[in-house]
Each structure stands twice: as structure tokens, then as C-alpha cells.
């Protein structure tokens, strides 16, 4: 299982790529593996305002369903349209082709609460 160094992570198993004031969000390799074959993703619309800690979407496998929580507050500027027709991309490429949304941050201080790759890995080992 991979946890790229350049990403930040949350305890709800989302990853965050920070590029100045725009962040990209998806779910981790661990999350996709625990869910199994993903069959459906529900994403917000472009322009939606997200609040840190609140769910912004849903990801479903055949027998499980999970809310996706936003690690940051801000406005959705882009969504990965491809996932709607091909949700399996999240299984095959969780960190690249399987990205979900891009958000324009309203509060950069929230980024300080995120875990780095090593901390996240420790966290999931404890959870197991």
C-alpha cells in the first residue's frame, strides 16, 4: 500500500495535495482497499462551499457506503467528472486519476492539522 510523501492525510482517510491556495482531495489507497470495488461516487457541484469536517460526497462499493469529509473549508473549483462514469478509477489509481475535487481554500491554517505520510501510516496501523 502506498502513501506518497508529498501528500497530507486525514483520519477519515482522505488525502490532500496542496498547491498554494488550491488543494486537490481524494481518498487513500487504504480507504479504497477497505471499501473494495467502488461502484458509485457522488461529488458536489462546482461552486459549492465546503466546511472543514463536514461531508462533501459519498463513495459506495457493493456492500458498503462511506461519506467523504472535507479536510478544509473553501469553494469547489473543479470536480473529476470522469469518476461519475468510471468510479473504478479510484480503485486503480487513488492518488492520480482517482482525484475527486479541487478546492480554493478559505483558511490555510486548517492545513496544519493534517497528518503527514508517516503519521497517517502509524494511524492506520493502530486502527487495524
Amino acid at each position: 500500500m502506498e502513501f506518497p510523501e508529498e501528500l497530507k492525510y486525514t483520519e477519515e482517510h482522505e488525502w490532500v495535495l496542496i498547491e498554494e491556495e488550491i488543494v486537490t482531495i481524494g481518498i487513500t489507497d487504504y480507504a479504497q482497499d477497505s471499501l473494495g470495488d467502488i461502484v458509485f461516487v457522488e461529488l458536489p457541484e462546482v461552486g459549492a462551499i465546503l466546511e472543514a469536517g463536514k461531508p462533501f460526497g459519498v463513495v459506495e462499493s457493493v456492500k458498503a457506503v462511506s461519506d467523504i469529509y472535507s479536510p478544509v473549508s473553501g469553494e469547489v473549483v473543479e470536480i473529476n467528472e470522469e469518476l461519475v462514469g468510471a468510479p473504478e478509477v479510484i480503485n486503480t489509481s487513488p492518488y492520480e486519476d482517482g482525484w475527486m475535487i479541487k478546492v480554493k481554500l478559505s483558511d490555510t491554517a486548517q492545513l496544519d492539522d493534517l497528518l503527514d505520510a508517516e503519521e497517517y501510516q502509524e494511524f492506520i496501523e493502530e486502527e487495524v
Binding site: 458509485f40 459506495e60 462499493s61 457493493v62 456492500k63 457506503v65
Partner: peptide, 9 residues
């Protein structure tokens, strides 16, 4: 589509 149903959701 049983994720809509009570035994899962």
C-alpha cells in the same frame, strides 16, 4: 444498489 437500504446505510 443495496447501499440505499437499511441493512447497510
Amino acid at each position: 444498489l443495496s447501499t440505499r437500504e437499511q441493512h447497510i446505510r
